[in-house]
Nucleic acid binder design. Structure first.
Lengths: 145, 145
DNA sequence: ATGGTTGCAAAAGATTTGCACCGGA
DNA sequence: TCCGGTGCAAATCTTTTGCAACCAT
């Protein structure tokens, strides 16, 4: 965690941005909830526990800033709000395959990268430079089906 | 096209809904733009060319109605608005794999279903009932890279 | 006349922006 | 002092909803 913060600080400094208290608080919340997929408002509420007078706009601006530096990634599960998760060295570059239960809304993950063949085909046949991908699988989880 | 309209009419009638002029106009626009991925507002503007006094709310309500009956499918490319495409017998049940150029916004399609193995694994290992999936591949197209 | 359908306007909800103020180098 | 960072409120943008009018059966 401490090293991670240092890394983020360095990354931001390269772009002439600072890791302020507010931003550090946002980062801390994301770090503590790496396994979740927090919405901006959820991040906001958690940050407010430590910094009661933070503004929602700051959270949005911070998330956008972090996004631009690849510190967090944002994802969309189709429920009308974005979700955010921080990226550390362990999951960097990994694509998440989200498995979404349509009944209870639970989200499972399959982090393995099984789409290499498909990506290779797209590259080759369409001469398309693949940068990223997202896979979502919808259905009913073991408890709901 | 005529047969298609009849089919849709029948489908709706089963649910005690009518295929009104307005709804037929929406369907016509979607049919004429099967290859595109129109947003609600784009559909609205196209419908207005034929039916100038249609309301945007009607377009939304129609798209939602059609969605519920599997007449259209909606998709989200992460640009803050939904896209709609009608489903006919030719592409019914097929999952679209969208390949999105991050520079020019062009959207290519790969309709083949290459994720069966992956779905089977999800089913087996997580005992998850797979109903649908979405795959999006981001990158740069042949013209932009 | 009955009940689904519609247009309009207002509401809702997530996110962004304008702006004045603040606070650390 | 200076300039990025911040909170607040207002604006934005897509989508939804309330409601009275409408239209076909």
């Amino acid at each position: 965690m401490q090293n991670y913060i240092k890394d983020v600080e360095k990354t931001l400094k390269n772009g002439d941005f600072k890791l302020t208290h507010r931003r550090k608080a946002v980062l801390g919340v994301l770090w503590d909830n790496k396994d979740k997929h927090l919405s901006a408002e959820e991040v906001y509420n958690l940050v407010k526990e430590k910094e009661p007078d933070v503004g929602l706009a700051t959270v949005y601006r911070t998330l956008e800033l972090f996004s631009g530096f690849g510190i967090v990634c944002s994802m969309d599960f189709g429920d009308g709000r974005m979700r955010y998760e921080c990226i550390d060295s362990k999951n960097e570059g990994h694509h998440h395959h989200h498995i979404i239960c349509l009944k209870c809304g639970k989200i499972l993950e399959m982090a393995e990268d099984l789409l290499d063949d498909l990506e290779a085909r797209v590259s080759r046949e369409l001469s398309f430079k693949v940068l990223d991908h997202q896979l979502k699988i919808f259905g009913h989880c073991s408890e709901c089906k």
